[in-house]
Nucleic acid binder design. Structure first.
Length: 478
RNA sequence: GGUCCCAUCGUCUAGCGGCCUAGGACGUGGCCCUCUCAAGGCUAAAACACGGGUUCGAUUCCCGUUGGGACCGCCA
């Protein structure tokens, strides 16, 4: 049963890999991996005016980033025109297709007329029985669609969907310029590549009966179909650029983890009881179309953000450090060629990972650990770096200077003893120190911050805070 | 306009006739923890679109209404 499952993702390179396409690819990938089948990547670039090699590269880049590896391809339809032409010839010979001499302009006029009169635009079949070429006209080729009976799509998600054949149009399979059209190439390729399951977006459901007629004409067994519900924007219309970032790689740049995006995307329309967070292995193991919903789903960036944080928290500090490095460069915190002590960085990252929802956020938070001098937040400075804290900061500076073991435990011991001596709350000491160290009032636990910062930097920053209060600081900011 | 699809909290969803006082998650409010911010724990508000059937019993099955969406190209 599981034997020989072959599925494909077939994007057209007229744009970047977007959220919707990625989810289609993902469901194909999951289905193939779940059943031990073959996942094929096919580029549908027959529209040569809109397809570009840059977009092909971009789609592949997106697939790789999401780690949706394919087993065959990428095939390009523009490499396969010979195949399509031979199928066209066969259909013409068998009388299943015919030449149509109507020009695109004429067809457009008739379509507009029909629309204006409230009729359904449909080809009138006037070229159906023309035997001789029409002088001065280069014909397109149309497929002779049966007009009696029904075509029933047996969909793995929606069940049986019935279409009346009289609704089906004689579709053009070969343009007058000799290039084949989408509905035709999909079927030829799926036949040729022995695709067993066609998993694609909901927007193709209406095309399916036409394509099924093509399958019959070729005498090829029907594949199974699964039409995935659409992804909508907050306004419940189909997700598009105006809803914000839709390119998969844009999420990479914003500091999202591919696994988080995959996890989010799969839960849009699929569920497994109450579980929200899945490993790849679990996803592959649990995936089934039985648990795929039928309703369109609204894309919710907030939940994606939450998931991303879950993934960031679950990563080891070491691997997170590697991942955040490029973002540190972008923030100009690490210059080109400069190397960072990765063990130290991991320690710093560890204190920040539950405070970061994205890698970009993490990189920004890492700032005060890395730079030479921190600038003070104005409000924080006024509130905590003043006469009241001056004595405490000086005392702390002196005692920290005598500390030989600059560890979390001994730093904490020192803080506790000072606090106890003065009969004040820990916060009264911690907050001024926090501003001195980070420039602001929010950070990881103050003892960890000092430990990561190290003795030398800690003393320097305390000294600078003291000078600031005394008004002797030169005012350099970093 | 025609064809097709869809319908549970604001959002993602569980539910496949009685287990439902409708569960979980995000977000939102409160409380706890606490050196700040997070994280974490507890907690609150929040939904079966409507109307008919079928049934002893409907969120669940059927029909209709309403509302949303997709497609109707010599685009894919």
């Amino acid at each position: 049963m599981a034997e020989g499952v072959r599925v494909r993702f077939a994007p057209s390179p007229t744009g970047f890999l977007h959220i919707g396409g990625a989810r289609t690819a993902l469901f194909n990938w999951l289905y193939a991996r779940n059943l031990g089948g073959t996942f094929i990547l096919r580029i549908e670039d027959t529209d040569r005016t809109r397809s570009t090699d840059e977009y092909i590269d971009a789609i592949i880049e997106g697939m790789k980033w999401l780690a949706l590896n394919w087993d065959e391809g990428p095939y390009r339809q523009t490499d396969r025109f010979d195949v399509y032409r031979s199928y066209v010839s066969k259909l013409i010979e068998e009388g299943k297709a015919y030449y149509c001499y109507c020009s695109p302009e004429e067809l457009e006029v008739r379509r507009q007329e029909a629309l204006a009169q409230g009729r359904t635009p449909k080809y009138d079949g006037r070229c159906k029985n023309i035997k001789e070429p029409v002088p001065g006209r280069v014909p397109a080729v149309r497929f002779r669609m049966p007009q009696e009976g029904y075509t029933v799509v047996d969909d793995m998600i929606r069940g049986k969907v019935e279409f009346e054949n009289s609704q089906l149009d004689d579709l053009i399979i070969l343009r007058s310029d000799g290039t084949p059209t989408y509905n035709f190439t999909v079927v030829v390729d799926d036949v040729d590549m022995k695709i067993t399951h066609v998993i694609r977006g909901d927007d193709h459901l209406n095309n399916t009966p036409k394509q099924m007629q093509l399958y019959s004409a070729f005498g090829y067994p029907m594949p199974k179909f699964a039409h995935l519900p659409m992804i909508l924007g907050a306004d419940k219309t189909r997700l598009s650029k105006r809803h914000g970032a839709t390119s998969v790689m844009a999420y990479h740049e914003m500091g999202y983890l591919p696994d988080a995006l995959v996890n989010y995307l799969v839960r849009l329309g699929w569920s497994y009881g109450d579980q929200e967070v899945f490993t790849r292995e679990e996803l592959v193991e649990y995936f089934s179309f039985e648990n795929v919903g039928k309703a369109a789903a609204v894309f919710n960036p907030e939940k994606l953000l939450w998931l991303n944080q879950q993934y960031i928290m679950s990563l080891s500090p070491e691997s997170l450090s590697e991942l955040v490095l490029p973002f540190l460069r972008k923030e100009n915190l690490v210059s080109e060629g400069q190397s960072l002590d990765m063990v130290w960085l991991s320690g710093a990252v560890r204190t920040l990972q539950e405070r970061s929802k994205t890698l970009v956020e993490l990189a920004k938070l890492l700032r005060y650990y890395i730079v030479e001098y921190v600038g003070y937040d104005e409000k924080a400075k006024n509130k905590f770096l003043n006469e009241k804290s001056l004595g405490l900061l000086s005392e702390l500076k002196e005692k920290l200077g005598d500390l030989t073991d600059f560890s979390h435990a001994s730093i904490e011991g020192l803080f506790r003893s000072i606090v106890e001596k003065h009969g004040i709350k820990l916060g009264n000491l911690a907050q001024p120190v926090r501003v001195a160290m980070t420039g602001g009032t929010e950070s990881p636990g103050i003892f960890e911050v000092l430990e990561i910062m190290g003795k030398e930097k800690t003393i320097k920053r305390l000294q600078r805070a003291i000078e600031t209060i005394e008004g002797t600081n030169s005012g350099r900011e970093s």
